[in-house]
């Protein structure tokens, strides 16, 4: 299946053309994308460090996660929207960019890591809510998440250099 004709069609729409050709649309989308990244990684890192045993502003892990997760999600959705708009403008070249493809791969792994945590250690959080250090499963999830999301940020920056 060749995806290029579809991406070309998207790229030819008036919205995509506007983003590509207006001088300020693309940098503005990038700026909002970076603010979103800062909130996503900033809040996720606080939770990940807590899963590794570094305490934050809450004693319990559950309350901390409940405090921060709404911010993470709103910021993540903001990143997806701004990211999709940037992708529309130049889709045909992005799908040939190795850094972009690996970034999407890491995003998927980060999602799987989060799902594994939520279906596993998180279900028993009442047992280890204030326990330090947290159980091994939680520590592994926190460590993987810190690395995977940092990888997403690195590869995102590399897209512009390949």
């Amino acid at each position: 299946m060749d995806i290029q004709p579809l991406l070309q069609a998207v790229q030819d729409t008036s919205v995509a053309t506007l983003i590509r050709e207006s001088g300020s649309a693309f940098p503005m989308l990038e700026s909002v994308h970076v603010i979103g990244i800062a909130i996503v990684y900033g809040t996720i890192a606080v939770v990940d460090l807590r899963l590794l045993g570094v305490t934050a502003h809450r004693r319990g892990a559950l309350k901390l996660i409940q405090d921060l997760l709404p911010y993470t999600w709103v910021a993540f959705v903001t990143c997806v929207i701004t990211g999709l708009l940037m992708f529309c403008a130049n889709g045909t070249t992005y799908v040939q960019n190795t850094a972009f493809l690996f970034k999407m791969g890491l995003l998927m792994l980060a999602g799987i890591n989060m799902a594994v945590f939520h279906l596993g250690a998180f279900r028993r959080i009442a047992e280890w809510d204030t326990q330090l250090p947290p159980p091994r499963q939680a520590r592994v999830a926190g460590f993987s998440s810190l690395l995977l999301w940092a990888g997403v940020v690195f590869l995102g920056r590399w897209i512009a250099f390949l």
Binding site: A38, V40, Y41, G42, T43, A45, Y71, V153, G156, R157
Partner: peptide
């Protein structure tokens, strides 16, 4: 990339 990671730490902590 390291600059952006540091932005996330500064802005995340500032926001909270």
């Amino acid at each position: 990339s390291i600059h952006i990671i540091a932005i996330t730490v500064l802005f995340g902590s500032a926001l909270i």
